[in-house]
């Protein structure tokens, strides 16, 4: 049993990431507010859709603001809770805006003792007929936004557009990192084969690369499913997706190359050389070129990575173990592939 501790560890971690990653609720958020466009000089009623919200609990302590920058905020004059998910906010909007524009976007902020603070960034647009900045400056209040509440429970961050798909951080990204770790290990085995000419090193490289390819395909699929819900299409001709497809082609070619040799020693040597060469071309493919071009992918082409959204570090508690978990599972599968390859080679010798 002592020998298998890492397999047990890998499985335990993966169960942990699946349960905690899937069952932990998201923070309260605002999915929708209508009407989106308001006019100055009126008392407007906004119907707000909450997500994971409990507006009916302690509803008298609910507060809401329309916020512009850091120095202008208009508190809601009346708050009517319809049910847990819907609340109606009345804002008495002054006659002029404090900006030299006809149209200005505002951020909606709701605070509740139960759910904590939630925002709809830039989601509300206010239009004015004529511009009078001085009057606008005077009319717009700067209501104090203080003593915002924190949701007490263990939650993941809520972000518009992403909403529940933020959980993909625990599957797509770690699968991808595990793939890179395992492919690196495969490359190291190929180097060791060239160095020592031990046929078992080549089998190890083959097994690890096999699993790396599998993890890469899974990473591509999980990414494409995520893209369907956030970008709108499975395949958006994004540079990250294209480069990934090419990387998988390179490793596909590795197995075609392996298949085209009769002589086992020649096969091992040539495929070890190609594996190292392919790995070297993988780095510009996955990590340099996507950074140069525009990309929709988080963490590339000027988009922020999800890590920066994880303000209270709850995501890291699942994300980091997930990398270890997928890597360990990958090594386990590689070990099985390796053992079957050893048996096959021994059969060939008999």
């Amino acid at each position: 049993m002592k020998k298998y501790w890492w397999k047990v560890l890998g499985v335990v971690i993966l169960f942990y990431t699946i349960f905690v990653g899937m069952l932990t609720p998201l923070k309260t958020g605002i999915t929708d507010a209508s009407p989106v466009s308001l006019r100055t000089g009126r008392s407007e009623v906004l119907t707000v859709q909450g997500y994971n919200s409990f507006f009916t609990k302690e509803k008298e302590k609910l507060r809401a603001w329309l916020k512009m920058g850091s120095d202008k905020a208009l508190a809601a004059s009346r708050i009517e809770v319809v049910d847990d998910r819907v609340v109606r906010l009345t804002f008495d909007i002054p006659a002029y805006l404090p900006v030299e524009q006809k149209v200005k976007d505002f951020t909606l902020l709701i605070d509740s003792p139960v759910d904590g603070a939630s925002v709809l960034p830039g989601g509300i647009v206010v239009t004015q007929d004529s511009i009078n900045t001085a009057l606008g400056e005077a009319l717009w209040p700067n209501a104090e936004i203080a003593k915002l509440h924190e949701k007490a429970a263990f939650t993941f961050p809520f972000r518009n557009i992403l909403s529940e798909t933020i959980r993909n951080t625990y599957y797509h990204v770690p699968l991808w990192m595990a793939m890179f770790i395992i492919l690196t290990a495969g490359m190291v085995m190929s180097v060791r084969y060239l160095w020592k000419s031990n046929p078992d090193d080549d089998r190890k490289a083959m097994a690890l690369t096999n699993v790396g390819l599998l993890l890469g395909i899974l990473g591509l699929i999980t990414g494409a499913i995520w893209a369907k819900y956030t970008w709108g299409k499975f395949w958006s001709w994004d540079v990250k997706q294209n480069m990934t497809a090419i990387a998988l082609l390179i490793y596909g070619a590795y197995f075609v190359l392996r298949g085209s040799f009769e002589d086992p020693e020649k096969k091992s040597k040539v495929s070890a050389v190609y594996n190292i060469f392919a790995f070297a071309s993988l780095v510009p493919l996955l990590y340099i070129i996507p950074k140069l071009t525009d990309s929709l992918h988080p963490g590339a082409g000027g988009n922020i990575a999800f890590g920066s959204q994880d303000l209270d570090n709850t995501m890291k508690l699942v994300f980091r173990p997930a990398i270890i978990g997928w890597t360990l599972l990958g090594v386990w599968i590689a070990e099985i592939v390796l053992r079957s390859a050893r048996l096959r080679d021994r059969l060939m010798e008999v």
Partner: peptide, 15 residues
């Protein structure tokens, strides 16, 4: 390898 002309394209294009 044995069927080198096919391999040439498969191996080199992605790289």
């Amino acid at each position: 390898a044995d069927n080198s002309s096919t391999l040439m394209a498969i191996l080199s294009f992605p790289v």
